[in-house]
């Protein structure tokens, strides 16, 4: 009986996906966005869900949240042309003209083109190939130890870069209409203002404030709840509650 009640109360991921598509088809993008959020809460993390959530939010004129959803989709599928097209389209509507933030580690710039999973599997495959060559070195001609070691080292670098990127959430999106960027946590000088959808680098977080950095090097403190992290595993911000003046 309890199981039956639970199944009635909570839709399965497949049902949520279907209901979201149906809601979007009849133009009810609010209901569609709710279903996509539920899927994410059920830990079904996929670029298609973030992509559709971004579309649904965009249709509701929630540009900041839409950019955030597409950015998260791009983290999971960096080479997806649809995601990049929608992001480019949305960026043209933003008030702040900022270069997109690249949060790949400095020693692994290729992570801009690879998802975390792809980086892990590619790195492991390279390391595995190195080990195979070492294991078969007596049966291979010449001296295969050097290329095997090179493959192993390269694989370690690729895998390490992917793992490091997976543990970083240092890019974010402004979710308020306007945020004030100050030189100090409390008080200080108002350095500049950012607007909805602006993409920034996130730094340390202290007492509800976050240190942000722009691609041109400018830094300042912003209220953390005005920002959303592009980490796909982080809870997606509740859009309806974010309309407070900023």
């Amino acid at each position: 009986m309890i199981l039956l009640l639970c199944s009635l109360l909570y839709a399965s991921p497949a049902e949520s996906w279907t209901q979201a598509a149906e809601a979007a088809a009849r133009g009810d993008y609010g209901a569609a966005a709710t279903q996509y959020r539920e899927l994410l809460q059920q830990n079904v993390i996929h670029e298609d869900i973030y992509y559709n959530l971004g579309n649904s939010l965009y249709r509701q004129n929630q540009l900041g949240e839409a950019v955030l959803a597409w950015r998260r989709a791009a983290v999971l599928a960096p080479r997806d042309p649809d995601i990049q097209a929608n992001l480019a389209f949305a960026r043209r509507k933003l008030r702040d003209d900022l270069a997109p933030v690249d949060n790949s580690p400095w020693f692994a710039p290729w992570q801009s083109f690879l998802s975390v999973g792809e980086g892990c599997y590619l790195g492991a495959a390279l390391m595995g190939a190195g080990l195979v060559i070492l294991g078969l070195r007596r049966r291979l001609p010449g001296s295969p130890e050097a290329p095997a070691a090179l493959l192993f080292a390269l694989g370690t670098l690729v895998w390490g870069g992917a793992l490091l990127q997976d543990r970083r959430s240092d890019a974010g999106v402004v979710l308020a209409e306007e945020v004030s960027v100050s030189s100090e946590l409390s008080g200080g000088v108002e350095l500049f203002r950012l607007h909805l959808g602006a993409e920034v680098e996130l730094g340390e977080r202290v007492g509800g404030y976050c240190l942000i950095r722009l691609p041109d090097g400018r830094k300042g403190w912003v209220l953390e709840d005005k920002l959303g992290s592009v980490d796909p595993r982080a809870p997606f911000p509740a859009g309806a509650n974010r309309a407070a003046p900023g």
């Binding site: 991921p13 497949a14 996906w17 279907t18 598509a21 979007a24 569609a32 899927l39 830990n43 079904v44 993390i45 996929h46 670029e47 298609d48 869900i49 992509y51 559709n52 579309n55 649904s56 965009y58 999971l76 599928a77 649809d82 097209a85 929608n86 389209f89 949305a90 998802s115 975390v116 999973g117 792809e118 980086g119 892990c120 599997y121 790195g123 492991a124 495959a125 390391m127 595995g128 080990l131 195979v132 895998w159 992917a162 793992l163 997976d166 796909p232």
Partner: peptide, 25 residues
């Protein structure tokens, strides 16, 4: 913007947690 995707529900994106299997051979 480009339209929604309505194909069947995708499974979760690979996170690389099983990548170590490639080291076994």
């Amino acid at each position: 913007i480009l339209p929604l995707r309505t194909a069947t529900l995708p499974s979760a994106s690979p996170t690389g947690s099983w990548a170590w299997i490639l080291l076994i051979p």
